[in-house]
Design a protein around this nucleic acid. Sequence first.
DNA 1: GGATTTTATTTGGCATGCCAAATAAAATGT
DNA 2: ACATTTTATTTGGCATGCCAAATAAAATCC
Lengths: 220, 220
Amino acid sequence: MSHFAHLSEENYLKALFKLSSKQVKKVNNIALAKELDLNPATVLEMVRKLSDRKMVQLMPDKTIHLTEKGRKKALLTIRKHRLWEVFLVDKLNYQWSEVHELAEQLEHIESEDLVNRLDAFLGFPASDPHGDPIPDKNGKLTQVQLIPLKEVELGKTYIVQSFAETADSFLDYLSKVDIRPAIKIKILDRNEYDQSLIVVINKKQLHLSEKVAKNILVKP
Amino acid sequence: MSHFAHLSEENYLKALFKLSSKQVKKVNNIALAKELDLNPATVLEMVRKLSDRKMVQLMPDKTIHLTEKGRKKALLTIRKHRLWEVFLVDKLNYQWSEVHELAEQLEHIESEDLVNRLDAFLGFPASDPHGDPIPDKNGKLTQVQLIPLKEVELGKTYIVQSFAETADSFLDYLSKVDIRPAIKIKILDRNEYDQSLIVVINKKQLHLSEKVAKNILVKP
DNA sequence: GGATTTTATTTGGCATGCCAAATAAAATGT
DNA sequence: ACATTTTATTTGGCATGCCAAATAAAATCC
Ligand SMILES: [Mn+2]
Ligand SMILES: [Mn+2]
Ligand SMILES: [Mn+2]
Ligand SMILES: [Mn+2]
């Protein structure tokens, strides 16, 4: 028994919430297995347990949907994750690109009271160091309209909000060129041939490939 | 696999360190099982694993001793536990009697870097909210000489440092009569018949039974 | 020293999560 | 329609930690 029972449930629910938010493709067993980097047999077994626990619903077309209960738990886990990230950056002076893995552990600390106190201690932040919004204690998420940098208008200035990619190599790159949430970015020009962008950040001119521009999310 | 692998190892090592510090009785399988509130078969199995991992040594007389490696790991876990307790009390406004169970989870967060930063953030505290000393980052523990209140001299004043008992009912009692680490306590009289004490705390007179007095540890 | 109690150990099981390999079913392409 | 690929499912196993019950060994009592 001990502590951290049903720890992995929270990871499954988070992954399901993430996939359903994208809603690019149907969320099936394979998609979930890929997201979690686990064997499909493992995932199928666990999804059945989650179904028994009324956290997910298995649809006739084999897609996996979060129930209200599952959605709530996913959002409370995301809340914990993001608040701990704020703590690590604001109080322990971590870089915003370093905190994700640490928060993967801290998010499983069980006490809800603790995370509510943490929220107050941090001054009720609206978003985490990556620019992602923090659900409130009831699991309510206030979404802002995000635009991929790839699709912005020339000449305008935007505020970097978050990113659509979490690979370390991507985050390292962003860190190197000093792109981070809340920073201002002005769009100078677009190369129509390869869809790359010329932008200005901190008064320095920068060339961003289409692949990078696709994964940087901004708001006007 | 996932996170928190070998989580229980840290609990076993902490328990072994605690028992060996008391050194009232020999630390054998039964004693450890009692301390951890686990089945002796379970504990024997785990102790053998810890022996394989060179964390403990099984002596010919069946007592269980921490190796240097095991002692170090125990002390680093205790360090994490106590620093998180300081965090909970100093930053999240918990009562010192509420934090133990929460710290039981937080102590298993793996990053050593994190706990060192936490230490700095908290201002390198010397002891936790219960008055217990915090090991440094190398696992070095500075012990102060502790005297059970039962054994103090009449007429003198002492400083409460920590407690030799962790039962909730005991901590609740202390909380009610406002006995906590760092508070001053003056010894007025001792009843020779039942070994109870009359003391003064915060200018209020208080009667302490022998059982209570045995478990309150003070320094001059 | 023989009976009793305590401690140590073995055995078989269980729960949670994970995997690889085999098979079955469904979807897709031509 | 038929072959290929993708997805779903089954089966047998493994690792970590836990328990209850049975047995063996050691210590203690009288
Ligand atoms: Mn996680
Ligand atoms: Mn984040
Ligand atoms: Mn613990
Ligand atoms: Mn403590």
